[in-house]
Design a protein around this nucleic acid. Structure first.
Lengths: 183, 183
DNA sequence: AAAATTACTTACTTGTAGGTAAGTAAGCAA
DNA sequence: TTGCTTACTTACCTACAAGTAAGTAATTTT
């Protein structure tokens, strides 16, 4: 029956990525799962606790992929990162950073820390991927790998935001151009 | 006394750019302006009406800049666009698109339309600027100007989001690298 | 068999959100 | 000077948000 807890996190994750942290309520979770709102408070005393659980899950997924992809050539690794964003795009989701960073000032401090941690992890991974890939001549770009990582992650994040507003073809155009630039 | 209306729009604009549309309330406006919440409803019957007024103001500012900058060389124009984002960065604001697009699904339909209109305007302007600038050999990039515009606007938008979370040096690093790539 | 723990529900509370109906003081218009 | 408009305020309402205290049925531990 630990199942309920995971379902709550999973739904909260979707709600954050579709509607935003401040725009969903416990009712949006308790109704579809056919539980009472107090059941959510049983597992997550405050909404911040639920938010933190969602971010931690994302950080874990990232760590898992990092390990799973570690032996692949860097261009393949980057392609797999793009694939995860493509999936989000098709589901109409934005990424967690894209959803939580605009609301950053309204988030409780412990959530802010987790968001920071998440952003550092993503940036670190992407920087190393680009740097090693360039060393092996798989990527071609000017400037420091960290700065390039900032731009790449920004483009991926914003492609999901713009796709929402301007249509899904935006994601395809952007990711194609981005890969063209790097390869 | 039409002053009050403009002050309401101005404050709403700030609140959207610092806390997000769903995270501010009429009290956040009525308290500092020392008016009652009903005074806001007098000018803007619903919160959506206020949101629309804010977006329309932004669209007008864009049109004004477009005219004001029309005679300058395209690299100067782009630099001025970057400057407006730099100002936002220093004030701790994100741009309107960066704030409203994550909440897009939760916005009332008339606001969604205005957000679309705004995004189209920005993209059109940036596309033409890049295209003409490349024709005059002021910019150097591969691919269609529209696709490049998507990437540039994405980077600017996301630079403000990431700066919030990771610190203001992120904006400088990104904008410097971005300009380096184009010039 | 008794005691404790788990996984919830029932039934609230408090706060605040957006929104409205009715009133009013000041200015302008006929 | 009477009436209309403007720019609000007063005083509400309803809905719903997050959160909590107390209870309970089922399982697990001792």
């Amino acid at each position: 029956m630990q199942d309920t807890k995971e379902r709550i996190i999973e739904l909260a994750d979707r709600l954050i990525k579709t509607r935003g942290f401040n725009a969903f309520s416990y009712k949006d979770i308790s109704d579809p799962l056919e539980i009472k709102n107090a059941a959510i408070h049983y597992y997550f005393p405050s909404k911040a606790d639920l938010g933190i659980a969602v971010i931690e899950q994302e950080i874990e997924k990232l760590a898992t992929n990092k390990l799973k992809w570690a032996t692949l050539p860097e261009d393949k690794q980057l392609q797999l990162l793009f694939d995860t964003f493509n999936q989000k795009s098709k589901q109409g989701f934005v990424c967690l950073m894209g959803s939580l960073s605009p609301d950053y000032e309204t988030l409780p401090a412990p959530m802010q820390e987790k968001v920071q941690q998440m952003s550092e992890n993503v940036l670190e991974w992407t920087t190393l991927c680009l740097e090693h890939g360039r060393n092996r001549d798989l990527f071609h770009f000017d400037g420091e790998a960290y700065n390039r990582a900032l731009l790449v992650i920004s483009d991926l994040l914003a492609s999901l935001l713009l796709s929402r507003v301007m249509g899904s073809e935006v994601f395809d155009k952007m990711s194609r151009q981005l890969l063209n630039d790097l390869l």
